[in-house]
Amino acid sequence: MYLRPAAAVALFASLAGCASLTESTDQNVLVQTVLDHREIAGVGCVLYNDMGKWFVTTPARVTLRKSAGPLRIDCEKTGKGWAYEKVDSRADANIWGNLVLTAGVGIYVDANTGAGYDYPSILTVVMRPAQDKEDGPAPAAGVTLF
């Protein structure tokens, strides 16, 4: 008699911890670019991770697919500046619920779908002046954005 309600509570508790079931795999972010401590508009940027690639002209919002992996951002405005940056995703609160409630199975699912991870909601890309690119070799991709 008490077994059925207890089983229902256990089922709902385990589902509450799984971000894949309770959260979207998409995230809306604002991308803005800064050069010499001032916002610069009209910069073309490509954002990409292991889930896809998105194009944006800053400043703008873009909906991208979340991932457990990093988000790469490549931006350039001819004659003005350029940037290559990397943003790491962070596990959200639901990922820890998965560890406790699903014995780790939910973490594996969330890592594969990206649902248990988030990028910062505002991505401020610091541009380098265009002449810096001409003075030396192209920088290594993956400079970490703070």
Rank of each mutant, 00 (worst) to 15 (best):
Ala115Glu: 03
Thr63Met: 12
Ala130Phe: 10
Asp132His: 07
Gly79Asp: 06
Gly81Ala: 11
Thr63Gly: 11
Tyr84Phe: 12
Lys133Pro: 00
Ala83Leu: 08
Leu99Phe: 13
Gly116Ile: 02
Asn94Leu: 12
Asn98Val: 00
Val62Gln: 00
Tyr119Phe: 15
Lys86Thr: 12
Asp74Gln: 11
Gln131Trp: 11
Ala91Leu: 08
Ala138Val: 12
Ile95Gln: 07
Pro70Met: 07
Leu71Ile: 04
Val109Met: 03
Gly106Lys: 05
Ala103Ile: 15
Thr63Trp: 10
Val143Phe: 12
Asn98Trp: 00
Gln131Met: 04
Glu134Leu: 13
Pro137Ile: 07
Leu71Pro: 04
Asp92Leu: 06
Glu76Phe: 04
Leu99Val: 14
Leu71Asn: 01
Leu64Gln: 03
Ala91Arg: 04
Asp110Gly: 02
Ser67Thr: 06
Tyr119Trp: 10
Trp82Glu: 06
Val105Pro: 03
Lys77Gln: 11
Tyr108Lys: 09
Ala115Cys: 13
Tyr84Ser: 13
Val143Gly: 03
Asp110Ser: 07
Asn94Asp: 04
Ala83Lys: 00
Tyr117Ile: 05
Gly106Trp: 02
Ala91Val: 02
Gly114Phe: 01
Ala83Ile: 04
Asp132Arg: 08
Val105Ile: 15
Val126Tyr: 13
Ile95Trp: 03
Gly142Val: 05
Thr113Ala: 08
Asp74Arg: 07
Arg128His: 12
Ala103Lys: 06
Ile73Pro: 04
Tyr119Ala: 09
Ala111Asn: 09
Gln131Arg: 10
Thr113Ile: 11
Gly79Glu: 01
Asp92Trp: 00
Lys66Cys: 02
Asp132Tyr: 07
Val105Ala: 13
Thr102Gln: 02
Gly104Leu: 05
Gln131Asp: 10
Ile107His: 02
Gly142Ala: 09
Lys80Gly: 00
Ala140Asn: 06
Tyr84Gln: 11
Gly142Met: 05
Lys77Asn: 02
Lys133Trp: 11
Pro70Cys: 08
Thr102Ala: 08
Tyr84Val: 04
Thr102Tyr: 07
Thr113Met: 09
Arg128Trp: 05
Leu71Cys: 04
Gly136Val: 06
Gly79Ser: 05
Ser89Val: 08
Val126Asn: 13
Gly116His: 00
Gly69Met: 03
Ile95Val: 13
Lys77Ile: 03
Pro120Asn: 11
Ile107Val: 13
Ala140Phe: 12
Thr124His: 02
Ala115His: 05
Ala111Ile: 10
Asn112Ala: 14
Trp96Thr: 12
Lys77Thr: 01
Leu71Gln: 00
Tyr119Lys: 12
Asp74Leu: 11
Leu101Val: 01
Val125Trp: 04
Gly104Val: 09
Asn98Gly: 15
Arg128Val: 01
Thr102Met: 02
Gly114Ile: 07
Ala93Asn: 09
Ala83Arg: 01
Asp74Trp: 02
Trp96Ser: 12
Asp88Leu: 15
Asp88Tyr: 15
Glu134Val: 10
Glu134Tyr: 03
Ile95Lys: 02
Thr102Asp: 06
Tyr84Glu: 06
Trp82Thr: 05
Asp88His: 14
Val100Tyr: 14
Val143Glu: 10
Thr78Asn: 13
Leu101Asp: 03
Pro120His: 08
Tyr84Lys: 13
Val143Asn: 03
Glu85Gly: 10
Ala103Gly: 08
Val143Thr: 14
